[in-house]
């Protein structure tokens, strides 16, 4: 028997519950990554020493595997008396990893805003915080939304790494189901299809968003 439908129907509810964990992890991490990325981007542009440190940190995180970062946080934080459950540790690792990627995107967006915008605000005697928040950011964000969206999809596809620290997301659940029933085909394939469908849908959504944003900026 190549595909067992009975088994499929039996495991679907379990996988559906796990999918919720995956989706929660995705959005929670991405939200933190968005904030962290902006902070890192600003730090990188402020002052030589802080800027250099922030850049080095970003470079380090981007040059090393997410998986080992997850392990690092999961095993190291308890050494400092911070005991976290696997889900939280995993979220933090994902957020930091993607925060670093997002900071690159923000930086590109911020640098694309013409200098004249800052100068105009200085001339109008607007404080720099105000300028940043009300003038620069609103111009910098829309063009980079698609790039950020791509990282959302990438992050989503990296959530299976949380299975390494036994977070019961989709892949870990599929793996458990497989080892309990000595049958991996159905759970793993379902998970694969779920990822495929969700990423394709998001890719279409991002393209749509991109077109909309382009249209607005042309006008």
């Amino acid at each position: 028997m190549i595909w067992n439908w009975e088994y499929t129907i039996e495991i679907l509810p379990v996988l559906a519950r796990a999918a919720i964990v995956t989706i929660e992890a995705t959005f929670l991490s991405f939200f933190i990554a968005l904030v962290l990325g902006l902070v890192l981007a600003v730090l990188r542009m402020s002052g030589p020493i802080v800027g250099w440190l922030a850049s080095a940190f970003v470079e380090l995180v981007r040059s090393t595997p997410l998986l080992i970062q997850i392990f690092f946080l999961f095993f190291v934080l308890p050494r400092f008396g911070i005991v976290l459950d696997a889900f939280t540790a995993g979220i933090i690792a994902l957020s930091i990893h993607y925060g670093c990627y997002c900071s690159e995107v923000y930086r590109a967006g911020l640098e694309a805003v013409p200098r004249g915008q800052w100068e105009a605000c200085t001339a109008l005697n607007v404080s720099s915080w105000h300028t940043f928040k009300n003038i620069i950011l609103p111009q910098a964000i829309p063009p980079i939304v698609p790039a950020l969206g791509n990282y959302l999809v990438a992050l989503f596809k990296d959530t299976p790494l949380l299975s390494a620290i036994a977070v019961l997301e989709l892949v870990q659940t599929a793996k458990n189901l497989g080892s309990e029933n000595f049958r991996y085909t159905e759970p793993m394939t379902i998970v694969g299809v779920a990822f495929l469908v969700l990423s394709l849908v998001s890719a279409v959504a991002i393209r749509w968003l991109e077109r909309r944003l382009n249209r607005r900026s042309v006008r």
């Binding site: 596809k157 299975s163 892949v171 793996k175 991996y184 998970v191 990822f195 495929l196 990423s199």
Partner: peptide, 21 residues
Amino acid sequence: FFRGTSALVQLFWLFFVLPDF
């Protein structure tokens, strides 16, 4: 297909599912 699914899922699929076949 390969861009749409995650690398780990692909590895697990090759590693766990192919033996079923």
